[in-house]
Design a protein around this nucleic acid. Sequence first.
DNA 1: ATTTAAAAATTACAAATGTAATCTTATGTT
DNA 2: AACATAAGATTACATTTGTAATTTTTAAAT
Lengths: 123, 123
Amino acid sequence: MQEISNSELAVLNVLWHHSPLNASEIVNALAAQQMHEKTVKTLLNRLVKKQAIGFEKQGRAYLYQPLINQNEYQIKQSKTFIERVFGGNLSPLIAGFAKHNELNEKDIAELKSVIEQWEKEQK
Amino acid sequence: MQEISNSELAVLNVLWHHSPLNASEIVNALAAQQMHEKTVKTLLNRLVKKQAIGFEKQGRAYLYQPLINQNEYQIKQSKTFIERVFGGNLSPLIAGFAKHNELNEKDIAELKSVIEQWEKEQK
DNA sequence: ATTTAAAAATTACAAATGTAATCTTATGTT
DNA sequence: AACATAAGATTACATTTGTAATTTTTAAAT
């Protein structure tokens, strides 16, 4: 599948959060990001063309829903990002966040739990 | 400053690894990624225009070096990425990596050290 | 000094992207 | 049934990006 652009992703994020939704509901959800209605419609069309979302007719309107899985998308993008920006090493990202005080209590707790889980699985 | 594109970043990464370098040295470094010489030259020009790199003349050739800091770039991009893809939460990224077995011994060790460091600083 | 070859500068060009406006069509209303 | 209106479809258009080719300049060799 073709790449999903940044602005397309904003639309997709809405549908990952809650779906199905019709176009005007999506427009409303994106009003905060001051994205114009016509722009959202364009992006919906492009996402359909890219087979990232699908729809079914509901009266005059369409009901859209994602066709790709958010978690899969996230992990794939993460790998690509870390490859591109960090040469494939994850930990510099974490270290960078730590250094710039971007980590909070909750992050640390979750990191610990991830580590614990990982170690359990290594048995 | 304008955004740095993916292919531009590949060039910039070479210079972050070692600089200053002249164009043909950079071309050589990128030969592995089968990037055409002319393409590299174009990207060097664009990076100069974007003020991401600078140069000084050395004979007929230019010696290029980065003008922006890699760590700063990395943290900024990381924040943007995590905002865009994970809605701002770091830990799902790590958890995702863990779940897909993308974490190795070394990553875990570094994560632990980051956590330790973080806790020390919270005192 | 001339020629040449290598560097840099300029130009090219299609595809993707951001951002809408306009056109067409189907549906709800009167 | 006619019509207004709202949805979706199509068109628009400048900018960015990937990927080079062509042109111009200039230092190096003879």
